[in-house]
Design a protein around this nucleic acid. Sequence first.
DNA 1: TTATATTGTATCATTATGATACAATTGTAT
DNA 2: ATACAATTGTATCATAATGATACAATATAA
Lengths: 256, 256
Amino acid sequence: MSYLKQISDKELKEGIEHFIQEAKGKYVPSVTLDTVIFGFHDNKLKVLLLRFAQTAHFILPGGYLSKDEDLDMAALRVLRERTGLDNIFLEQFYTSGKKNRTSNSIVSQLMKDLLGNLPADHWFNQRFVSVCYYALVDDTKVNPKPEPFFTEFKWFDIEAIPVLLYDHNLIVEKALKRLQTDLDTKLVGSKLMRDSFTMNELQKLYEAVFQHPFVRTNFQRKMLSLGILERLEKQYTGKSHKAPYLYRFTKDPLED
Amino acid sequence: MSYLKQISDKELKEGIEHFIQEAKGKYVPSVTLDTVIFGFHDNKLKVLLLRFAQTAHFILPGGYLSKDEDLDMAALRVLRERTGLDNIFLEQFYTSGKKNRTSNSIVSQLMKDLLGNLPADHWFNQRFVSVCYYALVDDTKVNPKPEPFFTEFKWFDIEAIPVLLYDHNLIVEKALKRLQTDLDTKLVGSKLMRDSFTMNELQKLYEAVFQHPFVRTNFQRKMLSLGILERLEKQYTGKSHKAPYLYRFTKDPLED
DNA sequence: TTATATTGTATCATTATGATACAATTGTAT
DNA sequence: ATACAATTGTATCATAATGATACAATATAA
């Protein structure tokens, strides 16, 4: 659920220098990708964040666009690198391009401390436009890989996202808004639920995404009327009340 | 409504060379902007397209991102340059990033013919990621400026868009889909209508955007129930039937 | 057996939507 | 004047969707 690695300034500096060396020829300049990775756990909507090495601050998982790579492929690769997951549901939802969105940040200061004063045309002094995707994942299957810049990953409740680097708080907000409409129109709920679940669990997902309660009986009627759920056997939990049915999503509503 | 200019190969070549000279220091590499400019005229939804000089092909109005410019500002500037309009309604809706989206096109061939074989790292051989905006304008007020690459501009009915250069047909399709949802959710209709209009004219707009008819009486009931229209005096057209009321949008539904 | 929590379903009122009817109005034709 | 055609504004009816509430049916604990 969480990963933590210690790294020395020297290791970090070397890692960064090595990265920059490689990046120059490999990546399309000026373009980054950021991903808002949503999971659903403990009846809460969660977002995966990375702690930037040597700082107390978190950041969205992101990456760069290879010169020979489609943008969507790059987003998938970034997700694979960060979460170890393939076949992820991904949607592009926004491109962030304010001119000062990454300047004057703690990261710039850290880079200066580690690498000295960088020339104006240095990789890290580039202006980046960031194409943003959101992903829906089964967070129990996420198995993140270590990477020089990031020494910790952590799932945050959507209601308790800390102050993030750059303009990433804004990006998370936009991702949530898009998730809300997609949950209604594209019925992407299946991507966040386990294979089978109770109606109550599904309701908790909707309440977490929309951040308001639903009337239980009406929610159930609505969901069943959509024709996307299949009723399975009952789930006996040992609790002292009627056992709920389990459901699963019949077919993927996204397949056309 | 339409603009046409003749230009010689020599003029075009000089124009392009001059542009490239300027562009290198001025613009963020790898990033372009494309705009789908919608207008509403003759009860049809129209899109403004530019003919690429020396070709028979049309293209979306686009531009580049200046190094000291926010992305949204760049989109506004591009629109101002192309249409002469300020205070335009603009929405970012998609970022196009397939690796080959601009290669192997007629434009590449034209550039080769004009400028000779370009080095691999030449400005025009860059790979561009394009951030796409759509705009809603009063097309009677559009007063486009000439520009070296483009020698003709023309409004096309959305139902009769020709084959465009690059992936621009795809971009127009995505713009239309987004316009459909925004017309429903953000009620952006006011941006495409003249100041006052009849209910029938408004219905024609909706039918053009959604590309299907609405039942007149129910459409009227729905529109009036939204509480965004103000009824004005009747419009006597001299036609032999009841004169319709004129309406106007009360307040901008987008102002929060 | 009783009590408690929760679930599945039914019901009713209200609102939204689709389909249709019809009177009112404007100008033209007779 | 009168009849007519075209179109508009509004009403009405049936149906569907939604919000609010009631209640019987479990499943286990006491």
